[in-house]
Amino acid sequence: MAGLEELRRKLQPLFDADIGPSPGMSMDPCESYMVSSEGAVNLLSKSSGVYNFSEHGLEKQTNGIIHDIDRSEQAYRCSSNEMHVFGAIGCGSSSIVYKAIHITIHRILALKRINVFEKEKRQQLLNEIRTLCEAPYFQGLVEFQGAFYTPDSGNISIALEYVDGGSFADVLRLRKSIPEPVLSHMVHNLLISLGYLHGERHLVHRDIKPANLLINLRGETKISDFGISAALDNSVSMCETFVGTVTYMSPERIQNESYSFAADIWSFGVTVFECATGKFPYSATEGAVNLMLQILYDPSPSPPRDKFSPEFCSFIDACLHKDPNTRPRADELLAHPFIRKYEKETVDLGAYVRSVFNPVSKLKDMADVSFW
């Protein structure tokens, strides 16, 4: 417990949720963050309290009380001086992701860096933190390892598990398409994760696409990138904001109508269609406006009946109903004939992933990092 008390001392709260900011603090005009002269930052979340970040790690404060977010003492001792950062492994609209090694525990991690001074990125950071660390760990989501603030750069780094295979987009670049039996098992696992997000966490992901679905060399699938996810407080709550990747966006979202979990099902259906056929189902070469018009007014895409099983075609058709009220829920899709068709077939997802991504090259990359 002494180590935990030392960590708490280093992470003295900069803001008291009951009495307000401490002396010497500067408040952002939008009242979403504050910075201290000691090189630490508070992110203020109306729904979740106050997040205290420093070079030493992260703690959360609610009603004046500091709470460890993690379920163990160790995970949040994730400080900047314990990280050795290597090259970038990806980037998105709000962040750059680097490969790093956590020196004290000799574990390879993915560090997602987000600039705290940009309001939109702060909100995405809060979304990511809330989704990944404020609930019991779920295997189908990328695992949260901690976070820390670097004053010199103004960046908050989120430490995530390093998924050593790659994304579904990487698989498509190397293999063009994924065979039905393999895809069925992948889809089964992803539907469990999506059902957890929708049913247990009441979250709409809002950016389901091949680049945000990951798989490791053991064949375990993971949903990642929760920066624009949105919480629905109850079954009748609806989202109304226009965010996400337009190419995978549902018709109701494009029309700026209220939407709910069914919007993720549409995006998932487009993603699975692309994984099976190797082609995005719409012509996206003539600009975003033309693409949106296709999604709204063209018939929903359907796989070629002569190349794919009736069960697969039925699965895609169910996901891509224009009317969101007729799309099945994630848990209902688990009982779809496309899933049942292959569930008794032995499919080694780990072996498939290792056949796509050169395991020797992957192991060499990890050995090079570990050697340091």
Score class of each variant (00 low, 15 high):
A17T: 15
I19Y: 09
I19V: 09
G20E: 05
P21W: 00
S22F: 09
G24H: 08
S26I: 13
D28H: 15
C30Y: 11
S32W: 04
Y33I: 02
Y33G: 01
Y33R: 04
M34A: 07
N42I: 15
N42C: 14
S47G: 12
Y51W: 13
S54F: 02
L58K: 01
E59R: 08
Q61F: 02
T62D: 07
I66Y: 00
H67Q: 12
I69M: 14
I69R: 03
D70F: 00
D70H: 01
E73L: 02
Q74L: 08
A75M: 13
Y76G: 04
Y76F: 13
C78A: 10
S79I: 05
S80Y: 03
N81S: 10
N81H: 08
M83E: 10
A88L: 14
A88K: 12
A88M: 15
G90Y: 00
G92L: 02
G92Q: 05
S93Y: 02
S93T: 15
I96C: 07
A100C: 14
I101W: 00
T104E: 05
T104W: 02
I105M: 13
H106G: 09
R107Q: 11
I108M: 01
L111S: 02
K112V: 07
R113Y: 03
R122C: 10
Q123T: 06
Q124R: 02
L125W: 01
L125C: 12
N127L: 14
N127I: 15
E128S: 10
I129M: 06
R130Q: 13
R130F: 04
R130D: 15
T131W: 00
E134Q: 02
E134M: 04
F138S: 07
G140M: 02
G140E: 06
